[in-house]
Amino acid sequence: MQLHARTRGRVLAAASAVCALTITLAGCSGTTKDSAKSDTKSKGSNAKANPDAELKKDLKLAFLPKQINNPYEKIVDDAGIAATKEFGGTGKEVGPSDSSASSQVSYINTLIQQRQDAILIAANDPNAVCTPLKNAMKQNIKVVAYDSDTAKDCRQLFINQASSEEIGRSQVQHIAKQLGNKGEIAILSATQNATNQNTWIDFMKDELKKPAYKNMKLVKVAYGDDDDQKSFQETQGLLKAYPKLKGIISPTTVGIAAAARYISSSSYKGKVVVNGLGTPNQMKKYVKDGTVEQFSLWDPKKLGYLGAYAAAALASGQITGAEGEKFKAGELGDYTVGKDGEVILGPPTVFNKDNVDDFDF
């Protein structure tokens, strides 16, 4: 999947301009214990980065998504696997078919036995995967979280799609504008333990405390477990339980598509606003039929691409995960490691009827 050329340029330009956003996605500091002692930090302080080191050949990278059948994460992982070929490595995707908290543990143990050079993980739970990930790092297998973070001491880097704060607050700002800053709203999330979802929701709730939203009320946070049918049913349940509901924010690509599908063929179409995070290809028809006015997302291909190069830089000794270190992510250019090992891809893009056809992913 490629962005149209003119759009790619526009998005990259915007990304460089907004790269300073302070969002800490999914499982950054908002979802981990500040008091936790970081093995990663101690490793970083003892190890020395060599920014002039060449990327090693024949690196083995494994992508471990929340669940293997998640369409969004398939896009991310496929792009990361393709990127490994650029520096002579090999990549693969493995993972569970469900998104329960402990479902990824056995896969991590297997990847350790296979002596992968790096494990890239979108964590279903920030802590459930920590013991095996720490074991991996002890054996010099690099660990990079992406999309949804682990606890900070369980990985060297976290590749954050955008600033968590910007994502969370913007979701409220967008739907508030559509609703004229009044009415009941609900959130349709993924799993209860998903670090990225919970961090975004915390910022949503904080944004709603502002005087500008005094006439808006969050009535429910529902969980569709990133399952299409359950998300569809949760949408139906929300609308029945709250007859005055005016809007639904779904910060998950599975959830927003399921919510839009339900509303598109119901009496709620045109009466209940749906907003959140989705991919252009899955949401295009709902924008064109008037069910959804707008939604947001970053380019998931670039997220996977950046993750692969970051893991390769770690495994090659170019960086250790310490704040201030720099590395080059192929055609995406230069990136800097931020606080707590966070690397931010760039700002999200808002999609609507005017630009949704410009994107293909």
Rank of each mutant, 00 (worst) to 15 (best):
A36Q: 06
I23E: 11
G27D: 02
K41H: 02
C19G: 14
A20S: 09
L25H: 05
L25N: 12
G30I: 00
S16Y: 05
R10E: 15
A36Y: 03
K33I: 00
D39Q: 09
A20E: 10
T31S: 05
G9F: 04
G44D: 15
V18D: 15
L25A: 14
K37Q: 05
T7N: 02
K43L: 12
A26W: 03
V11D: 02
L12E: 07
G27M: 00
R8M: 03
G30R: 05
A26M: 01
S38W: 00
K43F: 14
D39T: 07
R8G: 05
L25T: 10
C28G: 14
V18T: 15
A26Q: 06
R8F: 07
G9D: 15
L21A: 08
K43E: 12
D39P: 03
K33D: 08
A15G: 11
A17N: 14
R10I: 07
T32V: 06
K37P: 06
G9E: 15
T32Q: 09
R8P: 03
S45Y: 11
A20W: 03
T7M: 03
S45V: 12
G30T: 04
D39F: 06
A13K: 14
T7A: 05
T32D: 12
R10N: 13
A36H: 04
K41S: 10
G44V: 14
R6V: 14
C28K: 07
A17Q: 14
G30Y: 09
T7D: 00
R8H: 05
G9I: 13
V18I: 12
G27N: 02
T31D: 07
K41C: 02
L12T: 01
D39K: 04
D34I: 02
T31N: 09
A15F: 12
S35H: 00
